[in-house]
Design a protein around this nucleic acid. Structure first.
Lengths: 189, 189, 189, 189
DNA sequence: CATGAATGAGTCTTCATTCAT
DNA sequence: TATGAATGAAGACTCATTCAT
């Protein structure tokens, strides 16, 4: 049922999905839906809540204490996890990336919260990198935005590929993501 | 009237905006609206069409012929223009960036078209860069996605700042964008 | 279970009470309800049927045969019984007096039947009174209505008092009722 | 439209009447209804508000200053007006008298308010009567309830007659009402 | 050109009732 | 006998769109 809703929502968006769609997809009766979910809004929220939780579980602060793995390796692991999670939950990812102005302000707020937390995490990492002399100085907030942007759009691109039947190579994508964010596009640089 | 609609749409999203909102904001009668626009959908489309046109005008292929300005300078000009245009049309930008799953598949298709064209432009530039020995080899499509992502999210971040009353420095943002995309985050690397 | 329903109905009215309310109050399962009652309507009917029976038992034709107690005394006894019964079954009385337009026409018809029978009883008594020279001539039907009205509204008033925590004096109320109906409001008259 | 609703409500009660009934009776479309009334509840309220106003206009405190008309005459006038108003608005009267547990607590509260005001008026009159030596001492509150009851039930009875096609004689009813309330049922007494 | 009253298809939600366990 | 998950008809309300003035 959550599965059905997930599919329906990710296909038509929140507003484009009616209860009728969902119950048809789930093969249940109207009343049954309301037996498990208080409202259309509620099932949408639950869907995202679960996904937010799933995503958040993967995201950790990079450990820079001596003896820890090299930061780049840690980053690589995190990014690979994140990408893998997002790609293997294409439905939910689509909702997360593409659904906006959804059920009202609450959803946007929750979404903003989620990305905001990510943003802070990234920004914190960047600042640490600057302190450690690894990263160039600059507006870390804006850079955090841009880094987040690379991931979001990368996933979107991979999703498109997947939709076209192309097999996605998560490892390669991870490499590209790290390479792009760390070294930029230029050659020697 | 387009102005009113623009504001309403960007504030409440497509689905959150009713004809009533728009005509109230525009101070016209219901019937008058349909005198100028065939449907709610139509005014939304026109709004975006205009904006797409406005944006596209700014985006040029980088000229790599001998005697042209250095590519980085050209890029800088383009990016500055793009950022300035987006930021000075915050309403439309918000719609472009945040409104999804809007009026139906058509909107998404158009939006996808727009970003697709951008994507192709960027990819083409990257490939040129590779050929010229300026850029590292790699999956140029994915890199194009990521580059696009940096711009989208950067603008979103700047918009947030603007909404918070912080004056936005387009030149600085342009520098950050170029720097990030070209050189990445790492120091000397 | 009837008790629970009685309380629920008298508190929220017929339409305001759902099966859920009733089974919650009774602490039973949904299915169990339908084991004992064919429908929501049925339990409501049974509730009232019982109450109608209870009430009717108290109401007798006044015995005017020689040797019987004085009519006023008989009346006093009947009225006292009626008032006591109504007041000690506040829940049901509330339903009887206040619930209207309930489950549909049937309920109203039954209710009308009940009061109709009362009406006939009262009218008959009045006509007897006229024949015996005790009562003034007049439209006995209308007078019967009015007499019934005094009782209904009196009980309502007493119920209000009871709800406010005021102890109700049935004897006093009986006296007032008889006095009002027999002698009216005026002094010497 | 109010007319249609009035008829529908008075026939089926609040809960028994659907918007569909009302718009069918009024010969309008669904949306048109909501153009004029915010909700089902709203039209019901307006109906009653109007009627309350109409009724209240008729009810005055009896003037006992020297030189005024005899109280009984004033009473007679008031009662005649009230009865005439109620009977010539049979639909609304039916709602007022028979609809309970309607749209929720608000309606009951409003209804209670209305009858409460009447009650106070009557009680005040009775107390004045006692002071003037016209009325017997007693529980004036309870007597007010009973007086109110006579009117309500009398009207109900007259309504029944009217429904049966019997022509109602308002003057006769007024006489009966006054006679009953002032002198009671007994003969010389 | 402008108006705004009227429309009715479409949506969410409730709740009495059934039935397999 | 008891349960409670499942049902689906019915109802209130929204809103993009039309059209007579």
């Amino acid at each position: 049922m959550l599965k059905a809703a997930r599919h329906v929502f990710s296909t038509h968006g929140y507003h484009g999905s009616s209860i009728a769609h969902i119950i048809d997809a789930a093969g249940i009766a109207r009343g049954t839906f309301y037996l498990y979910f208080v409202s259309k809004r509620a099932i949408f929220d639950e869907l995202l809540e679960d996904f937010f939780a799933l995503m958040t579980r993967e995201v950790r602060v990079v450990d820079v204490s001596p003896g820890a793995l090299p930061p780049r390796e840690q980053l690589s692991t995190i990014v690979r996890h994140v990408l893998a999670t997002l790609l293997s939950n294409a439905d939910l990812t689509r909702i997360l990336l593409r659904e906006t102005g959804g059920p009202g302000d609450d959803f946007d707020r929750k979404r903003a919260d989620f990305f905001g937390r990510l943003l802070n995490l990234i920004q914190h990492a960047l600042e640490t990198g600057v302190v450690l002399g690894l990263c160039r100085r600059g507006d870390t907030r804006l850079r955090a935005y841009m880094t987040l942007g690379t991931v979001k759009e990368l996933v979107d691109g991979l999703l498109v590929r997947a939709e076209q039947g192309v097999l996605v190579d998560v490892d390669a994508a991870t490499r590209e993501a790290l390479d792009f964010n760390l070294n930029g596009l230029l050659c020697s640089s």
